[in-house]
């Protein structure tokens, strides 16, 4: 055939969500606002400002964060996700939602299993992990009818976990990779628990000056005082129980399933195939394919 023929060359498609500098800008801004929305009870005393309206603050942020989450999602998905990444996101969100026990969506972060989120972030890159954090929590809330003011906070925290997992150093592999992911799993389990507690701590335990309980948030009290109170609150309510349970299940799942599941996920990226009858006889070309171990998002660029 002559080279003058129309020539269509499409590289093997990969699963991943590209993060441009615009998206990064929005991610950074929303992360700052998210941390502020979670950490204001401790932040204000630290900069020497006495918070006002403490009773209203949780409601203010409960109203504000949905808008911010929506803006971030709109920015990350802008320009359209390809159908392949979208379908994989949907299926993995469903798996994540199924892994969360039915009661988990009820209140702030009682229980969730992060292992697939971390592995997907690792396999498909930070953009995918970030988005999967949002969609997993949202899917779980929709499926268990658990939509509420806690949802944007959960979504944001889970998205941070997915993003971090995607940003871990690429070169690490083998046992070191697994160890790194397990460490990440344990850290995220406790951090997620503490952050979700921090969100609803002033909500459930705001003491009126006259009648403050000893675990309550005291607006205007020094940061050390409130930190102690929060420390005890979170230790007593969740760190000892739920969070440790979550850290254990996550790390156990990572140790046992980490490598095989990572292999399965990485296979889904970089294979161009429709479900056709004669796809199979393409044989073993996938072994050692260039996309097997590299960052799919980079590979696409």
């Amino acid at each position: 055939m002559s080279r003058a023929d129309p020539f269509l060359d499409i590289p093997a498609p990969v699963v991943g969500v590209r993060l441009g500098w615009r998206t990064w800008a929005v991610i950074v801004a929303s992360t700052a606002l998210g941390l502020f929305a979670l950490g204001w009870p401790l932040l204000f005393p630290a900069i020497g400002v006495t918070p006002q309206h403490t009773a209203d603050a949780p409601f203010v942020f409960a109203a504000l964060l949905p808008l911010v989450v929506v803006l971030v999602i709109a920015q990350v998905t802008e320009g359209g996700l390809d159908a392949r990444s979208l379908a994989v996101l949907g299926v993995l969100s469903a798996v994540n939602a199924a892994l969360r026990p039915a009661l988990g969506a009820g209140t702030a972060g009682i229980e969730s299993v992060f292992f697939l989120l971390i592995l997907a972030g690792r396999a498909f890159g930070p953009g995918f992990g970030y988005l999967l954090g949002f969609t997993s929590m949202f899917a779980s809330a929709l499926l268990t009818a658990g939509v509420g003011p806690w949802l944007p906070f959960q979504m944001l925290c889970a998205a941070w976990v997915g993003l971090t997992a995607g940003l871990l150093p690429r070169r690490v592999s083998g046992r070191a990779e697994l160890a790194m992911l397990v460490a990440m799993g344990i850290a995220s389990a406790y951090a997620y628990g503490a952050l979700m507690n921090l969100w609803f701590w002033p909500f459930i335990a705001t003491g009126m000056e006259s009648a403050a309980g000893s675990l309550d948030y005291l607006p205007g009290a020094p940061v050390a005082e409130n930190l102690t109170r929060f420390g005890w609150f979170t230790l007593l309510t969740s760190t000892g129980g739920w969070d440790t349970g979550r850290a254990l299940t996550t790390s156990l799942a990572l140790v046992v399933l980490g490598r095989p599941v990572l292999a399965v996920l990485r296979r889904a990226s970089g294979i161009g195939r429709v479900a056709t009858g004669d796809q199979g006889r393409r044989g073993s070309h996938l072994i050692g394919s260039p996309h097997g171990s590299s960052n799919p998002v980079q590979a696409r660029d």
């Binding site: 998905t77 979208l86 969100s93 969609t135 929709l142 939509v147």
Partner: peptide, 30 residues
């Protein structure tokens, strides 16, 4: 919830589609 998803702003079109996929994938997973 399905109608809620369908009524989301157009900018969240991808999110809505991901949710639709997730909701229909769950029974298949089972």
């Amino acid at each position: 919830p399905k109608k809620l998803l369908a009524s989301l702003p157009a900018a969240l079109y991808e999110l809505g589609t991901i949710m639709v996929v997730a909701v229909s994938a769950l029974p298949q997973l089972g």
